[in-house]
């Protein structure tokens, strides 16, 4: 797997962060995954994934503007790093290679 090793859920989170672009913060990421992929995401699992992705430097985070509804507490926004983008591309190309290798007969399930 090499230096771009990434888990399935991590990949989903990383992609979602990329999808949300400027608006990628915890709860938005969770909700987006839930909506788009129709799967339940636990806050804990999501946080763990984010933390790990940040550690692998696929992601960086920074605080946004403070707002009153959070009592002056600022949101943490996530951004995909170029390194992260590479990792995603690597996953994509790996997948692509595999797809191309499938003989057309393989899906003939009749």
């Amino acid at each position: 797997m090499g230096k771009y090793a990434i888990g399935e859920f991590e990949e989903v989170v990383l992609l979602t962060v990329a999808v949300l672009y400027e608006n990628a913060y915890g709860i938005a990421i969770k909700e987006d995954i839930e909506q788009r992929l129709k799967r339940k995401v636990s806050v804990g699992a999501m946080r763990t994934a984010l933390k790990r992705l940040e550690k692998k430097e696929f992601l960086t985070s920074e605080f946004g503007e403070a707002t009153a509804v959070r009592g002056g507490k600022r949101k943490r926004y996530f951004k995909v790093t170029p390194y992260g983008k590479k990792a995603l591309e690597k996953v994509m190309s790996d997948r692509q290679k595999l797809w191309e290798a499938i003989p057309s007969m393989a899906f003939d399930f009749k």
Partner: peptide, 17 residues
């Protein structure tokens, strides 16, 4: 709650959760 707020929840939601 602090973490929830960081996640982007409102105070009310964070408190509830």
């Amino acid at each position: 709650m602090e973490d929830y707020l960081e996640d982007g929840l409102t105070e009310q939601e964070a408190f509830r959760l």
